[in-house]
Amino acid sequence: MSATLPAAVRVWGLGGAGVATLLLVVELVPRLGIVDARYLPPTSQILGALAERLGRAELWTALGQTLTTWFTGLAIALVAGVALGVVIGSVPWLRAVTASTIEFLRPVPSVALIPVAILLYGTGMASTLLLVVYASFWQVLVQVLSGVQDVDPVASDTARSYRFSPLTRIRTLVWPTTLPYAMTGLRLAASVALILTVTGELLIGTPGIGRLLGVAQSSGAVASMYAYVVVAGLLGVAVNLVARALERRTLFWHPSVRGEAVA
């Protein structure tokens, strides 16, 4: 936006050339026999399979299911993470008591819960949701906790000497400081949530893009497999773009975003 037009055109042109190179390489490598076309079909076949899938309701239904699981899980994790983070972060003794437990539970890989989820909830959406919520919750919580801790001590003391009520304190002091951290947490959680949504669909069999990919794999439809990988990748790109745009819009007042716009 702020860059001069020719530079922007140049960046876009180079980026487009990069994408074109990738498409060309994937087209040529199997055609020249460098890689077996049964393992890697040329671009044209992948895109053909994709175009054909795009015309079917099946893909769109699956996309909707994946997005529903992803969004529900992310929303639960976000609300829980922000609420608990603000409460735990604002109360020093609570923070001290929970620190070791959080540090222990956070690195526990969420996929460890797959067998437990299957036993508890079968193959439905709840199984995958359990994984998604567990994985993305920690991302949000940890960020919010460090955000709450980052409150300027002078501002905090000022708020206290003016006898701000706890609610006012949170609204005018803690929240503006925490918001950038929470947005970072949201951005990280959004992509982690997508990873686990697809994982759950692939391994547990919850309906969605991941399950379609699993079905394509077991029926040996290689071009379709690649088509679904492309769909999953584009979904990931969309998630990243939306998360970044949201971050920029919510934090338009924050120096980090303002500085970026100027530079």
Binding site: R38, I195, M225, L235
Partner: peptide, 26 residues
């Protein structure tokens, strides 16, 4: 950087587990 960035962003956005069935082929 300008040349590679869009492609890299795409590959980063692909949820890694979907690569398992692909890599099993090879």
């Amino acid at each position: 950087r300008a040349y590679a960035e869009p492609v890299l962003e795409f590959f980063r956005a692909v949820p890694p587990p979907v690569m398992v069935p692909i890599l099993m082929l090879f």
